[in-house]
Amino acid sequence: MSVFLTSEPIILASASPSRRRMLEAAGVEVHAEAARVDEEEIKLSGKAAGMKPPEVAEALADLKASKLARKYTGPYIVGGDQMLECDGHWFDKPVDRADAANHLRRLSGRTHTLYSAVVVFHNGARVWHHIDHATLTMRSLSDDFIDRYLDAAGDAVLSCAGSYQVEGLGAQLFNKVKGDHFTIQGLPLLPLLDFLRVRKVLPA
């Protein structure tokens, strides 16, 4: 049974089960609703305009939150998104197992950066945002290990950029991680909790 500390529920503009689990584990009551946006188009247009990965992550988070902010008045609307960059290449979620294996081969033995953004709207206005990043160094992976890892991880790898969940079996992929664990999972949670305390959604 979940125990919530919030004075009112927030609306999470995301279908991400990871973000919802993080918030609920921290005592935040969440109503999750996916905001349908064309992420691929935003990434393509952002790259063409010379935007950097953290800017694109923020733009995606903003668009998701603002879309639901037009629908709801009263609750705080939280949008989040994440970008993965390695050697100038942006990685999206893999479309299938073969794509996931290709991602892991490309990231093997290299250091990449995850950028996580969160944007909050209230009563139709953007009231807060935060961007954080983490760097992760993946050890050199053999093809045999990649196959065994994908067998064990299953379809869960298709829900995350880079084809891993570091909070689970994905920890086997790395030999160095620098940054906040929540940021790596896709949400700068601690700054968001601070903001919710300032707004008295959470007790101080």
Score class of each variant (00 low, 15 high):
28 V>H: 03
94 P>W: 00
105 R>M: 08
46 G>S: 08
57 A>Y: 00
158 L>K: 02
122 H>L: 12
139 R>I: 13
150 L>I: 06
31 H>M: 15
63 L>N: 04
102 N>C: 14
46 G>Q: 09
3 V>G: 11
29 E>Y: 05
195 F>E: 13
32 A>N: 01
78 V>T: 03
110 R>G: 04
125 A>F: 14
127 V>L: 11
176 K>V: 12
50 G>N: 07
27 G>Q: 10
60 L>M: 03
72 Y>R: 07
70 R>I: 07
157 V>P: 00
110 R>W: 02
37 V>G: 05
4 F>T: 10
28 V>D: 01
144 D>C: 14
190 L>W: 11
188 P>F: 00
14 S>Y: 03
122 H>R: 14
93 K>A: 03
189 L>E: 07
164 Y>T: 08
2 S>Y: 14
168 G>L: 04
149 Y>L: 07
119 V>K: 02
61 A>K: 05
92 D>H: 12
124 G>S: 09
79 G>P: 01
167 E>V: 02
28 V>F: 08
185 Q>E: 10
54 P>T: 09
130 H>Y: 13
19 R>I: 04
63 L>E: 09
187 L>C: 02
65 A>R: 10
150 L>G: 02
19 R>K: 04
10 I>D: 05
18 S>Q: 11
154 G>A: 00
167 E>L: 08
102 N>H: 15
114 L>T: 00
174 F>S: 02
170 G>I: 02
87 D>T: 11
31 H>I: 15
26 A>T: 08
135 T>A: 11
130 H>Q: 13
116 S>R: 01
170 G>H: 02
72 Y>G: 09
34 A>W: 09
203 P>G: 14
91 F>W: 10
146 I>Q: 04
16 S>W: 01
12 L>A: 04
15 A>Y: 05
124 G>V: 09
62 D>H: 15
154 G>P: 00
10 I>R: 07
178 K>P: 08
5 L>G: 10
11 I>N: 02
146 I>E: 08
175 N>E: 14
176 K>M: 14
197 R>F: 10
62 D>F: 13
48 A>K: 15
96 D>V: 04
182 F>S: 14
10 I>C: 06
80 G>M: 06
7 S>A: 15
107 L>K: 01
110 R>F: 03
98 A>C: 10
40 E>Y: 11
189 L>S: 06
43 K>S: 08
136 L>W: 03
135 T>Q: 11
106 R>F: 09
187 L>P: 04
49 A>P: 11
160 C>M: 11
95 V>W: 13
158 L>W: 01
